[in-house]
Design a protein around this nucleic acid. Structure first.
Lengths: 216, 216
DNA sequence: GTGTTTTGTGAAGAAAAATTCACAGATCGA
DNA sequence: TCGATCTGTGAATTTTTCTTCACAAAACAC
């Protein structure tokens, strides 16, 4: 069950929200100040925190900064009675997941919570298998070159690839082609010429993104 | 001199803005559509892009996504005639640096541009990463987990990491930590606790990009 | 101090990845 | 048909990567 911490100085709102979210299947806790929120979040792992922007003593914005530092895994959704673009921009840049103005429809809030949970699920890294496969294709520089080559000229024969890469032993190329074939990155037509699959194009795209990112 | 690309379908605004910013000491270019912006940004490196949200054909939001992918170094500031909290949240989450509504005072825009440049100056300090190095760090799933872990909680000790990853033999973890240290992805302070370097954060960013891409 | 936990080293071995080589069927051009 | 080239297999070997283990200094707990 997912843990949600509700942080607001308005106790009525806290209790109401708590009840509604419990019915929706979440486990909820409450805090009435920024300090209390920080303490509770430090002591226990929350998946999501609903954080009021306007609170006496410590503002929600300051609390947000501290919480992002101490509990980076917790997704923070900001609540506010007076939504402004400026504050929204600031909050998101400080690491909030979303920003919703009070009063809100409970369905809207629920949708936002779901989205935040989706993000954290994503960050946990469920897509490990694909990742391993793709990365192990990309780690080898010969394979990277093959992928690029086949993207540039679709449908090359073994010896054409071998010569293009300036490799003496063609069986070395065969080894990597086999590897790429097994990963579903390339295929062969009946004329024995190799070409990228859809997956292959996607892998190439990954490579480009990485190169782009790394070359800065 | 810093390069700024002004993207808006309103040519009057482009010309005005271009003139004002030139006087302020920036070098400016113009684009009237999202497609043109993407092309220009791909061809030449811009430090900052001013991107209108509402444009015919490709929306600024879609252009933003594409530009973040292709030119991750360029800071994007969104302009819009109708500022809404929702759009601001969306834009910032997609990687925009800021969000300003038209009409704006030129001093405000200048302040925002300066802030964006400040951000990129900070990011410039990061060393370029080598593809082979980065990929070989990422291929191993233990190392990937360590990177994620150290991103979430900055400054962990050996045994904390070992327990968090649920590994019996701590020397196995030592092996991978050493590897990461040699690649410049993590460092250790005098209290022996490990944390990500700037390059490490960047590597994590790569990982996220890949995951993001692969999970679609 | 004395035992315990933490943080590591370095060597040995296992496992995985990559290379090299001997060989062979298929195909192509004459 | 005959030699040459292309395409590939499978086994042996090397190289790289990862794991395991024995051991030890340093910090910490009592």
């Amino acid at each position: 069950m997912k843990n949600i911490l509700i942080v607001d100085d308005d106790s009525e709102l806290r209790v109401n929200l708590s009840e509604i979210l419990s019915k929706k299947g979440y486990h909820t806790d409450e805090a009435s100040t920024g300090i209390e929120a920080i303490d509770k979040a430090t002591a226990k792992k929350f998946d999501v925190m609903l954080l009021d922007l306007m609170m006496p003593k410590m503002s929600g914005m300051d609390a947000l900064a501290e919480i992002r530092k101490r509990s980076p895994g917790t997704k923070v959704i900001m609540l506010t009675a007076f939504a402004t673009v400026d504050n929204a921009v600031k909050a998101i840049k400080k690491g909030a997941s979303d920003y919703i103005s009070k009063p809100f429809k409970i369905e809207d809030l629920d949708a936002i919570i779901r989205r935040a949970l989706e993000e954290s699920r994503f960050e946990e890294g469920i897509k490990k298998l694909d990742m391993d496969f793709t990365l192990s294709s990309l780690t080898n520089s010969i394979r990277r070159k093959v992928i690029k080559l086949l993207h540039q000229n679709r449908g090359l024969h073994l010896m054409e690839i071998t010569k293009a890469l300036d490799i003496e032993d063609h069986t070395k190329v065969v080894f990597h082609l086999k590897n790429l074939k097994e990963s579903g990155i390339i295929e062969q037509d009946k004329e024995k010429s190799y070409f990228l699959t859809k997956e292959g194009e996607k892998t190439l795209e990954c490579m480009k993104i990485l190169e782009n990112y790394l070359s800065r």
